[in-house]
Structure formats: C-alpha cells, structure tokens
Write a protein that binds this DNA or RNA. Structure first.
Lengths: 193, 193
DNA sequence: CACCGTTGTGTACAGTTGTTCACTAATGTG
DNA sequence: CACATTAGTGAACAACTGTACACAACGGTG
C-alpha cells in the first residue's frame, strides 16, 4: 500500500499502476502481491479505508483547535492545508479516486465525504452556529462546504508543495469561498420567505 | 480520438488506456496511431481542445435560452445536465482529467474552467445581475459557481444515464447550491461592512 | 494523367504484464 | 522447542505492450 501511494505521489495515476510495478516499488517479488490483495481494486479499497483514518485525524485536530467561532474558517482551512501537505500522496489518491476507474473506490471516497459533511453539520450545531437553519438546510450547506474544499484540493495538488505563495493564494481563495457560503446560509431563510 | 472517448465512456480511465487498445477500438492497425499523435498525452491534449468546443456550445445554448432572470438557475442547470447526457464520454474525460496523470491535460481543463467562469461573469454583468459586486467579488462568485457545477458533474457521471429520479435529485441539489451561493453574493458586501 | 503528401498496412522485436505453482523463510502461539 | 500460519521466492507461460521500418492504398492538385 505504501508503494502504491508512493507512485501516486510521484504523479502516476492509480488507474495506470500495475501489480508488478507496485511490487517492484515495494522491493518484493510480484507474486507476493497476492498474499495481501486479490487485485489492484482490492488494494484501492484498502487505501480508501486508510484514507478514512487520515480524514478523521484531520477532523479531530480541527475540533480541538478551533476555539472561537470567528476564526473558524481561517483555522479550518489552515488545518486542511497542512494535512494535505503532510499526506500529499493520500490526497492525490483521493482526488484521483473521485473520478477513478473502480466504481467501488469511487463510492468509498464519496461516502467518506458524506460522512465528513455530516460530522461537520454536527459540529456546527454543537457550536450553535446554525440555529437558524433546518436540518436539511444545514446538511445542504455542509455538503457544499465539503465539495468546495474538495475542489480546492485539486488546486492544492496542482502546485508544488513548497510554493508558499501559491499555497497562500489557494488558502485565501478557499476561505473566501467558505465565507461566501456562510453568508448565503445566514440569509437563506429570510431571502426565501 | 473517438475511439479513446468511447473507451472512457465505457468506464475505462484515460490514464490506463494504451496505444494498441485505442487503435484496436478504432479498427486500425497500431502503427497508424503515430500518423496522428506522438503519444497518448498528445491525444489527450487534442481531446481537451475538442472539449472546449463542447463547453462553448453549451454556453451558447444557455445564453440563447435563459431569457428571464428568475429562471436563470433552473434553466442553466437543466441545460448543463442535458449537455452532459448528450456528451457523456467527453465529460467523463473532463472529470478524469482534472486529477489526471498528464500535467498538460490537467492544466488545459483547468484553463477551460477559468474561461467558462470569466464568460459567466460577463453574462451576469450584462444581465445587470451583479451590479452590487466588484469585479473581484464577481469573479470569485463565478469561480465558486463553476466549481460547484463541476463537482456535480462527478455526481451525474456516477449514476446511470437513464436513472431519471437520481438525475432529478442532482439537478435540484445543484440548483439549490447555486441559489445559496447567489444569496451569499447578494449579501456579501452588507455583511462585510 | 502523373505526382506527392497523407493515411493505413504487415512484420518484427525486445520488454512488460498478470497469474500459476511448488518451494522456502519468517513469525508467533501452545 | 515444535508446529502451523503467514509472507516471500523463483521459474515459467502466454498474452500483451510501445515502437521501428519498409511498403501499399488513397486523395487531391498541377
């Protein structure tokens, strides 16, 4: 799994990886592959599971560090970006998998995102930041937030990891996107009435 | 190019296609490939160019058919969805390319999206729907809109093309996302002041 | 018609791929 | 320590890959 991730991190696409290639990178004979996985799709599915762990760690850190509500977005986006930097290969895999070849991997990642959105909704409720929204409205808002951040991921992965200027641009842009969405959510009901 | 698109439309990932595979699908001998393309990346780049045409056609149709502003979003999302249905393979290619293997293809698609966003900004200005926004604010809003629709693309490609119920769900959800963004844009300045 | 640039063909080759099988090394549990 | 499970090995195979080259059909222009 590390070998596959390494190759993905080097710019290869997961869908184009072969068994021999992965085992070569792992420093192991091709047949050993079958001791652990039935095929590449299987490997992909297990990577999705690990990706889940990465995302949960990220969520936990966000929950612990976002103290006052007014810096919520700045800090959350910052934590997101630093986790992407620290697990670049994983997020490459995630971005690729969203439109990937294996339907199962695709569905797995999609479901991680759904989970993430629903946890985010819980947190916003808990922090009493969404009292004016119904459950369905809150869910929609969080869904849109997660999508927006996920799309920023492709921006982030498109620039070199030490290009601080560009990364800061992406950070600012993403933060403003989220602010715009929040403003929309704040006035959602009154505007619809 | 049609052969490659066909394979992508059948669920294969562009990054995993080989020259022989494509020429086989095209009903042509492998060596013929080199008469037209230097390698698969080259093919991908030419597909991006054609994708640009598809997007432009879509934009034109939207401009012609969106008459009154109050149905703007409903109709635009509808047009988007019908164009995706009509050019499914192309949009598969686009979704894949955003996190694809070839940096050049990636950048090509990204730049198509930027172009799309800037055209959208022009249209909104022209329709006098964004008079309260500065250029930068309008640009940001349109960027977010295009991203949101692009992400919905992955939803759309994830369901079978004749699952009318699911497609309608996606249509509604996307429309609400856009409405939320518009509400946000409408109150952006007053909230920031 | 003769000519030439473009597209397509057939053959060839060396390298890579997925998967099989029987075998050996390592590991941890009673 | 002995044993059973797990992980890794090596050789083998047929199928497939990208690419090279010389040659043939085609299509339009002078």
């Amino acid at each position: 799994m590390n070998a596959a991730l390494t190759l993905v991190g080097k710019g290869r696409h997961f869908a184009s990886l072969g068994i021999r290639e992965v085992t070569r990178q792992a420093g192991v004979v091709p047949t050993s592959f079958y001791r652990h996985f039935r095929n590449m799709d299987d490997l992909g599915l297990q990577l999705v599971d690990e990706l889940g762990l990465v995302l949960r760690r990220m969520m936990r850190e966000a929950r612990e560090n976002v103290l006052q509500a007014d810096k919520l977005m700045d800090e959350s986006v910052g934590i997101f970006i630093s986790h992407v930097q620290a697990n670049r290969s994983f997020f490459f895999f995630m971005a690729q998998g969203l439109a990937g070849e294996s339907r199962a991997v695709q569905e797995g990642i999609r479901s991680e995102l759904r989970f993430f959105a629903s946890e985010l909704a819980n947190d916003l409720r808990r922090l009493r930041l969404a009292d004016h929204l119904s459950d369905a409205e809150l869910e929609m808002t969080c869904d849109l937030i997660v999508r927006t951040v996920a799309f920023s991921l492709t921006d982030l992965l498109g620039v070199s990891s030490d290009d601080d200027y560009q990364i800061d641009q992406i950070r600012k842009r993403t933060t403003r996107f989220l602010q715009l969405i929040f403003v929309g959510a704040a006035h959602w009901q009154s505007d619809r009435a």
